[in-house]
Simulated scan of single mutants.
Amino acid sequence: MASSSSSTATERRGIPAAAFIEDVETYLNQSGLDVNTALAFLQERLQQYKLVEMKLLAQQRDLQAKIPDIVKCLDVVATLEAKKGTGEDLITDFEISEGIYSRARIKNMDSVCLWLGANVMLEYSCEEAKALLQKNLENAKASLEVLVADLQFLRDQVTITQVTIARVYNWDVHQRRIRQTATPKDEPHS
């Protein structure tokens, strides 16, 4: 007799693994569920997966936007370092507010101010800023890699759950047909 379910992982970072149901009847008997309850449970699990997917996709978008910003900051620090020993001023345009720019002449290129978030800005030497930004870039890339793996795992669980829902539904339809053909047809009375 085939086993009722098999699973390679029980969860990944809090995302429960979906069990593939090989034998629907055995699964229903072992779980003590009727078809409607099993389908309701599976639909609920599918909705939970979809909510987690939306959350992970939002995190992915945030990281994908953050990485180019960090790279841009690293480029600015590199430009400041390159100009530092030349004695030349750096002339640049910077954004004051959305769509409004001003021109600036930078004479002292020994330090740079970085926004850390929550309206906090700190001044760093160019070397410290470069090291901090490089570390942030590596962390963001590593986080993105983990997120992509989480999303792939989640998509696999969604697929398994959708297939399971279809299998349970199809099994139920098949059982109903068997019951219909097994019941004798009413013969007309003469």
Results as ranks from 00 to 15, higher is better:
V120C: 07
E127V: 13
D75M: 03
C113E: 12
K130M: 06
A149Y: 08
D93T: 05
A140Y: 04
L63G: 02
E123A: 08
S102Y: 10
I96S: 06
H189A: 07
P16L: 08
D172P: 03
G14M: 09
I96G: 06
A2Y: 07
Y101V: 03
S4W: 03
G32A: 04
A9Q: 14
V24D: 01
V71T: 13
E187F: 10
C126G: 03
A82T: 14
L74W: 02
L28V: 06
L42A: 15
Y27D: 04
V173G: 00
E25K: 01
G32V: 00
E123C: 03
R177S: 00
S7Y: 06
V173R: 01
D23E: 14
K141N: 10
T8K: 08
N36L: 05
M1Q: 13
S125Y: 04
S31H: 01
W171H: 12
Y169A: 12
L132Q: 14
T86H: 05
V146A: 10
Q64T: 11
L42F: 11
Q152Y: 06
Y124K: 06
L137V: 15
V120N: 13
E22S: 08
S97R: 14
V146Y: 08
D89F: 02
E88K: 00
V24Q: 06
E95F: 04
D150N: 12
N170R: 08
G85P: 00
L39N: 12
R167P: 02
T164M: 05
V71K: 15
E123Y: 01
N139E: 11
A2Q: 15
E95V: 07
R176D: 11
V24P: 02
E95Y: 07
E128S: 10
E138A: 15
K107G: 12
